[in-house]
């Protein structure tokens, strides 16, 4: 007879349930990464920054939408919105990328990860996907708010909604390009150090210190140097890609006929950063 209120030690139980494969591990790590990007499951302190940035970006979108509903015209369209917010996104990745990778290096938790079925490539993929998603949500959700306003205030009915959607989708694609560039560079920088402050400083430096280089190149007395100046900075690079794809002339950057070069560099930059990141973790994973 067992008495109430007595806790019985039932001893060690073997686990008989299912064991999931590597895809599930990747999913778990991705969800964990995305949650910690926004400080979910962390202390209140670590929620302040990401939600602060997200709040500001959303506020700008709401104001933009309000203006549109009043005067029928955007302050900035989907693309300009992403461009304008880039500075805030820099600060966002400067805080979040070290949170995702430097933290793991600092606490020495990686040997625990890599002694499990997880591989270096899985780890890199999960972290990259988490940060890309986070940055994309940061830009994409406000863009969607803008779309909703546009769709509801349209005067041409369903046709107007389709037209608006036709603008939103490439806008989302453009946000994805921003997300990929920001993620690949910031994760690579953050993976080099376990100190979050250094990582954050390094990330901001890479994005902001390269901007003056563009200025210097643009002031050289050579037409070609002007056209290629934008390649020197990731931000100008993304602008350059937009100018190339949408034939814009109002972004203060003249890329001449070198549009494809911008496209190629953007692709190569992302690929190179991701490969370096993978190489870095291949080395780390062997402990």
């Amino acid at each position: 007879m067992s008495e109430a209120g007595v806790i019985h030690d039932i001893g060690y139980q073997r686990y008989q349930g299912p064991r999931l494969g590597r895809a599930a591990l990747l999913g778990a790590l991705y969800t964990h990464g995305l949650r910690s990007a926004f400080g979910l499951g962390r202390s209140a302190k670590s929620k302040i920054f990401p939600w602060g940035v997200a709040g500001i970006v959303l506020l700008v979108a709401v104001i933009n939408a309000g203006v549109r509903s009043q005067i029928g015209r955007w302050l900035f369209d989907y693309y300009e919105f992403a461009n304008t917010m880039s500075l805030l996104v820099i600060f966002f990745v400067a805080i979040v990328a070290p949170e995702l990778v430097s933290r793991d290096i600092r606490s020495g938790v990686l040997p625990l990860y890599f002694s499990r079925p997880l591989r270096a490539a899985d780890y890199v993929m999960a972290k990259v996907a988490a940060l890309v998603t986070a940055v994309w949500l940061l830009l994409g959700v406000p863009q969607f708010v803008m779309f909703l306003t546009g769709a509801f205030t349209t005067k041409t009915g369903m046709k107007g909604v389709w037209h608006e959607l036709g603008l939103l989708i490439p806008g989302w694609g453009y946000s994805l390009l921003w997300a990929l560039i920001f993620t690949s560079i910031s994760l690579l920088v953050a993976s080099l150090t376990g100190k979050r402050a250094f990582a954050a400083g390094g990330i901001v430096a890479v994005f902001l210190m390269t901007a003056p280089v563009v200025g210097v190149l643009s002031s050289l007395p050579s037409e070609t140097a002007h056209h290629l100046a934008g390649l020197a900075s990731p931000i100008a690079l993304v602008n350059g890609v937009e100018i190339w794809l949408r034939n814009r002339t109002d972004l203060g950057l003249d890329i001449g006929d070198f549009g494809p070069i911008y496209g190629i560099e953007a692709f190569c930059l992302i690929a190179a950063c991701l490969l370096l990141l993978l190489a870095r973790y291949r080395k780390v994973a062997s402990l």
Binding site: A24, Y113, R116, P117
Partner: peptide, 10 residues
Amino acid sequence: THVGRLSGLP
């Protein structure tokens, strides 16, 4: 719990 999930536990 987190490490357990990385070992493949639901």
